[in-house]
Write a protein that binds this DNA or RNA. Sequence first.
DNA 1: CAATAACATACAGGCTGCATGTATGCAACA
DNA 2: TGTTGCATACATGCAGCCTGTATGTTATTG
Lengths: 208, 208
Amino acid sequence: MQQETGRRSNRDRTEATRADLIRAARKLFTEKSYAETGTPEIVAEAGVTRGALYHHFADKQALFAAVVEQEAAAVAAEIDHASPPSLSAREALIAGSDAYLKAMRAPGRTRLLLLDGPAVLGRAAMDEIDNRHGNRSLREGLVAAMRAQAVTRLPAEALTALLAAAFDRAALAIEAGASAADYRAVLIALMDGLSPAPPPSKRPAPSR
Amino acid sequence: MQQETGRRSNRDRTEATRADLIRAARKLFTEKSYAETGTPEIVAEAGVTRGALYHHFADKQALFAAVVEQEAAAVAAEIDHASPPSLSAREALIAGSDAYLKAMRAPGRTRLLLLDGPAVLGRAAMDEIDNRHGNRSLREGLVAAMRAQAVTRLPAEALTALLAAAFDRAALAIEAGASAADYRAVLIALMDGLSPAPPPSKRPAPSR
DNA sequence: CAATAACATACAGGCTGCATGTATGCAACA
DNA sequence: TGTTGCATACATGCAGCCTGTATGTTATTG
């Protein structure tokens, strides 16, 4: 309560230290990779010692999981933020796709969430995280579209997972320099292909 | 030419040692993961020393790349082997999908090719490998289908990449215990959705 | 003022890559 | 055809780094 480095509640100390560690780890994990980033480097960046790290996290992997969790939540927040509630099912899905692809342009996010994440934590753990954050919007959108019969009836779980996989690969390809318009067109074609009725119109997509 | 351990040409020695190392590494990389497998363990399994490993491969990652290369070729071979040449475009794609999902059931293959591979070698390197082996059949099949107007005209590169991503995720989900029939149905629906005309019939898929 | 949380420090074990040493195959030449 | 010199195929040892844990110290809390 008094000066900066003076008396601090234990809860505040923990919260601040954890936040510093996650911030530092996020920076390094996105600049380099999980494997190339050592804990000495992380704690140096965070301004603490390895003792603090291993006091708050079980191991390096647990810290990584915390970073992934936070980053997945950030992506989900960006998507929710950018999709106004009153749109047709189709337009809502397209808006969500665009928001996702845009969010994934943050440097290093694709490696963190799409490459290192699955490899370090496993696909199952990543699915669990995605379902809690990002994929929820997608799955709910798809289920809503299916209810509205804009999408043929299919196993929701599988459909969500496979479309999400396509989104992920698109994000990776775009970051690698591929044509965003091409990938966007194919993504929309894939989603439109699921509707029994033909898509409403056929105006060319904005380049994005 | 004489006894087993006796005089051997240098070329034969190199070939045999490299093969032993790749075989041992493949076994361990599929049983455990890339990160959890150390070079001492690999060379013990192969019956050589670490000196031999670092003589034939630049580093652990290069050995891993050789394993991935070989495994990707094996998958591609299984697919080519299982797809008779005279099928309709649609049926050829379905047969290829089934062959791929079946091939990916080999223990540890999904982790090797779909998790560790992209993380360790990068998506770009994996794309390069895939395009040389597995994806070639898929892309050629799709291009052929597009030529036959069974598939709407779309950027071939992007379409191939996104469908391949869906296949990959399906393989991962199935290995994790998800319903293979569900994922197969969605994969077929995604591909059928690309055709302007409705799919020929609607018999239920064999459970596989 | 005790007990516990939040660190800091020191240590053990393992792993990677390289440098150096050694033996074997090979090729040319006498 | 023998041997002489070099390149290849390893084996061994070393240096540096990293992870996880155990132990010590300081600040908080009840």
